[in-house]
């Protein structure tokens, strides 16, 4: 969140609108601390049913769209970290993200349609996931799973989570939301590794389209270098207490 705030301020809040949408079935309880910690001045929304991902066809977070003054999508991306950040992982920290998307966003706000990062309608179409019977059915299953989860009907929630995941195996939101609601640890790590793998090695790379971004060919996602140094520091702190 702080990195998005930095981007927002660096461009100027009067020059564009920024909407942050948390895809979290846990609602305010799950996301408030993230929102609150960052003193955000842009628009913040909690979307417990992942409705925005469904509408834009996104299957992972973070994802983003640029929407121009006429309401047209001129770029849609998955894997849009606005800058480098660190997050807790076990005893240590991991690093993710890079500045490429933020730079491109700055350029688009400044230059509009003239920006080299604006996609043509053909290029854009290639980055939007097709709507198929399976993805629609998976969406209905996922929403049903979230409903039963909220009702604390775990058995029925699991049945529909499983159905959604089987119908849309490339939808990471369906998996990660389920993992976290079942308390399965390391979901971030697993997903980041797998996402990075997808970006590099499969045709899904097109949905993580970095076309035109400053380091188009480079994939920088997670570097585990902080795990050990940070873990050692924490252990030392604990011993001192």
């Amino acid at each position: 969140m702080p990195v998005w705030q930095e981007l927002y301020e660096s461009i100027g809040s009067d020059r564009f609108e920024m909407i942050s949408v948390a895809q979290d079935s846990g609602g305010a309880k799950a996301v408030d601390k993230w929102f609150d910690r960052a003193s955000l001045t842009y628009r913040c929304v909690i979307d417990t049913t992942h409705q925005i991902s469904s509408l834009f066809g996104w299957v992972n977070v973070p994802s983003a769209a640029w929407i121009d003054e006429q309401g047209r999508i001129v770029r849609s991306n998955e894997g849009t970290y606005p800058g480098e950040f660190k997050f807790n992982f076990g005893l240590g920290k991991l690093r993710a993200g890079d500045d490429a998307f933020a730079e491109a966003t700055r350029d688009w706000v400044n230059h509009g349609a003239e920006s080299e990062y604006v996609l043509s309608s053909t290029e854009l179409a290639a980055t939007l996931r097709p709507v198929t019977e399976e993805t629609l059915l998976a969406e209905a299953e996922f929403k049903l799973a979230l409903h039963f989860k909220a009702q604390k009907d775990t058995k029925r929630a699991q049945k529909h989570f499983a159905a959604a995941q089987q119908l849309a195996p490339d939808n990471w939101c369906y998996m990660r939301q389920d993992w976290v609601s079942r308390g399965i640890a390391y979901s971030d790590f697993k997903t980041s590794r797998l996402t990075s793998y997808l970006r590099k090695n499969t045709e899904d790379a097109r949905f993580y389209n970095r076309k035109g971004l400053p380091d188009e060919d480079e994939t920088r996602f997670i570097t585990p270098e902080w795990i050990w140094t940070s873990a050692l520091r924490r252990i030392k702190q604990r011993l001192r207490r």
Binding site: W4, E17, A64
Partner: peptide, 16 residues
């Protein structure tokens, strides 16, 4: 649609 006339950056994230 109320934001027509403005550029909009819409992004998702999650606590998970």
């Amino acid at each position: 649609s109320d934001l027509r006339g403005h550029k909009v950056v819409l992004f998702t994230w999650a606590s998970w």
